[in-house]
Design a protein around this nucleic acid. Structure first.
Length: 662
RNA sequence: GGCUACGUAGCUCAGUGGGUAAGAGCACAGCACUCAUAAUGCUGGGGUCGUUGGUUCGAGUCCAACCGUAGCUACCA
């Protein structure tokens, strides 16, 4: 049995979890769940990355303490990740006593081993804010192409790279003031001492070849000292024996992996040293995005090596996420937060889609809504869930949900089991795209089997009862095998399937032994199809209101157009649920002297009892519309994206039913 | 600008050390079926493999240049 410690990169304490974080967290979670299901000892750790200038300034802007700020975000992050079934042993924070202790211990080791030195650095300084400015926080005209408002490291317009001091008319983004050059002592880690170690380490199977090729550039152009200190004010850990120097956030961030683990060791009984001291046969795996390879595959192993810890077993690097072919955009509604996603769509659909797209390469992954809809509906609902759905009834009706004592075609069951070894390999490599393809091709075979031994025909024939039961038994067993294979990817769907199978939680080796002579649970719908409308709502809700683009002429209406709409104040006389409608409430409205019935899609946000007596605004001359539940004679106005965020428009006190609104 | 990757049917991808006539799933069209969430089964159309040039008896595969996309470029994290 392997003993494996796994980490995903630390989300920064400066914003919500979004599709990008989820790609990595889900990828890692799938890998970990596979290892556990397979029978290995595997632990998954993460944390919020709390330090740095950005969190410090955000807290200040929000008017709360830094501790309050990061603790709020951490709570939110944990909640979001749990909704997507991401199951960490511990989700900690880099701003923790364990991390401070480890960071200082490691620093002192580096110092003791002669890898730390100091040097004077002159850097742009915002004297009104009394803050040294990272290149990112200085903007000005590009020295090459003259483009306005470019950051201090490279130009977004022409791609030039330069130093912040080269910018024309530089200004601090914090105060708009002109920065001045100021000198200060910085602490450096002498990375060059580890050149030959890193050359060896990066080419010994710890990273894929494409990643090590990229790292060659760093190694061959000569490793420079790494600046690991920042001047006060800075949010981080203070460097021992200094009064105003702090550790750069990227020094303590990866140490946060260890700290999160140590914090958990203290309550779980697992030995910290088993995983972090050299000479053990345990494994450490980091999952990261391609943007932070240098920190994890150069700085981090060198720091570990120098301070007497073991180095990672493997660094798994993934690409970036784009949405419909473009970078996520707040104004287009493609900057999708975890919370918004889970409001409109089943989080597990994202797990499946990501799994279907993830390979071990650093290629970017495009979240294409059309592809997403098609894959989830066609694969999970049309193929997989369809199998029990088409057999369960026959077993329930004729056989009291009892499986037969033998399989009609054991060879087919064995064929499914024979994929086990190759699927293991694919999971281990992180090629879940191929796992999904392999499993879906098996699901096709299961459906073909049913089509060529049609239960609905057997059910009509006298004396074919045994054959019918056997056919359905095999189909259910094929489904069960597929559940085992997909369990790391869609654990919640498989859990519902386990309830139907009326069996213990499935384990990897269950694919070898069929479930026979066994009573199934009641079959319930295992998964719902995705409706395009849900996606539309998700995009709408993700659009930031402040990012609304100005209307074009064609979208504008005249005052005459507007006057055609008869808006009236109405009093809600009665409100009640509509049977069979998930989102509708039936409202009885008093508009002036008349009464009318309006169906409003506000059930997810309002309790009918609380609506009685309330005044709202209604479109009074809307053509009545026949619905399944009755005729709706108007429309009440409300704001918001939907779900629990619907806000009825009400007049101020004093307005009377029937009054015109204009 | 430099570096590392990527570019194959409408979409997502597979194409082993260059070698039969470029594959799969989805989407689309036709047929069949009606157990199943308009699910399933069978059949079919669709590609100058980013562009140009080169190496070779032979190139999607190797080389070069160019175009496009992404990331990095050590002080964003």
């Amino acid at each position: 049995m392997r003993r494996i410690l796994v980490t995903a990169a630390l989300p920064y304490s400066n914003g919500s979890i979004h599709l990008g974080h989820l790609l990595e967290q889900i990828q890692t979670d799938i890998w970990v769940r596979f290892q556990k299901l397979y029978g290995n000892e595997c632990y998954y750790f993460c944390a919020d990355d709390a330090h740095g200038t950005a969190t410090m300034l955000s807290a200040e802007e929000a008017g709360v303490s830094k501790e309050e700020w990061i603790s709020r975000l951490r709570e939110e992050h944990i909640k979001d990740l749990q909704a997507f079934g991401v199951d960490h042993e511990n989700y900690y924070s880099t701003h923790s006593p364990e991390n401070e202790k480890l960071t200082q211990e490691i620093y002192l080791k580096l110092l003791e081993n002669g890898a730390i030195f100091t040097d004077e650095v002159s850097q742009l300084y915002d004297s009104s804010k009394e803050l040294f400015l990272a290149d990112r926080y200085v903007r000005g005209k590009c020295p090459r192409c003259g483009a306005e408002d470019q950051p201090g490291d490279n130009c977004d317009m022409c791609g030039a790279t330069y130093a912040a001091t080269d910018l024309i008319e530089p200004r601090s983004v914090h105060s708009d003031s002109k920065p001045v050059l100021k000198s200060s002592t910085h602490y450096f880690f002498d990375l060059a001492q580890f050149t030959s170690f890193l050359r060896e380490w990066t080419t010994s199977g710890t990273v894929r070849e494409d990643v090590s090729n990229k790292l060659k550039e760093w190694l061959e152009s000569g490793l420079k000292p790494w600046d690991i200190s920042r001047d006060a004010p800075y949010f981080g850990f203070q460097i021992p024996e200094t009064s105003n120097k702090y550790f750069y956030v990227w020094l303590d961030a990866p140490i946060g992996y260890m700290a999160s683990f140590r914090n958990w060791c203290d309550r779980s009984g697992v030995e910290f040293d088993d995983f972090w001291k050299p000479g053990n046969d345990t494994e450490v795996h980091h999952f990261i995005g391609k943007d932070i390879v240098n920190f994890h595959a150069l700085f981090w192993p060198a720091v570990l090596k120098c301070s007497g810890f073991r180095t990672p077993t493997r660094i798994h690097v993934h690409g970036y996420i784009t949405v419909d072919g473009e970078k996520m955009s707040k104004s287009k509604g493609t900057f999708i937060k975890a919370e918004t996603y889970s409001e409109f769509l089943d989080p597990e659909t994202l797990r499946y889609y990501y799994a279907a797209r993830l390979t071990p390469t650093i290629n970017d992954i495009d979240f294409s809504f059309a592809d997403f809809l098609a894959r989830v509906n066609s694969d999970l609902v049309g193929k997989l869930v369809n199998i029990p759905s088409r057999c369960a009834n026959f077993l329930a009706r004729g056989f009291d949900s009892q499986l037969s004592t033998e399989l009609s075609e054991p060879s087919l069951f064995e064929e499914f089991a024979a994929s086990k070894a190759s699927i293991e390999q694919l999971y281990e490599l992180g090629d879940t795209a191929q796992v999904v393809r392999a499993v879906m091709s098996l699901a096709d075979k299961a459906n073909q089997y049913i089509a060529s031994n049609p239960p609905w025909e057997l059910a009509k024939q006298e004396g074919k009862e045994q054959e019918l039961q056997n056919t359905c038994t095999l189909a259910i067993n094929l489904f069960r095998t597929l559940c085992v294979y997909l369990k790391p990817i869609v654990p919640m769907l498989v859990e519902r399937s386990e309830q139907f199978l009326n069996s213990e939680p499935l384990t990897w080796n269950d694919v070898d032994e069929p479930l026979l002579d066994h009573r199934l649970g009641k079959f319930k719908r295992l998964m719902n199809r995705i409706d395009q409308k849900q996606i539309d709502k998700l995009i709408e809700a993700s659009k930031e209101t402040s990012a609304i683009e100005p209307e074009s002429d064609e979208d504008q209406i005249t005052i005459e157009d507007f006057q055609k709409i008869d808006l009236r104040v109405a009093e809600i006389l009665d409100a009640r649920f509509v049977d069979g409608a998930d989102s509708l409430l039936e409202l009885k409205l008093k508009v002036g002297t008349g009464e009318r019935i309006v169906f409003a899609g506000i059930r997810t946000a309002y309790d009918p009892e609380k609506l009685k007596g309330r005044h709202v605004v209604v479109v009074a001359n809307l053509k009545p519309r026949k619905m399944r539940f009755g005729t709706s004679e108007g429309m009440v106005l409300a704001a918001g994206p939907g779900g629990s965020d619907i806000f009825l428009v009400s007049p101020d006190d004093g307005a009377l039913s029937g009054m015109e609104v204009r």
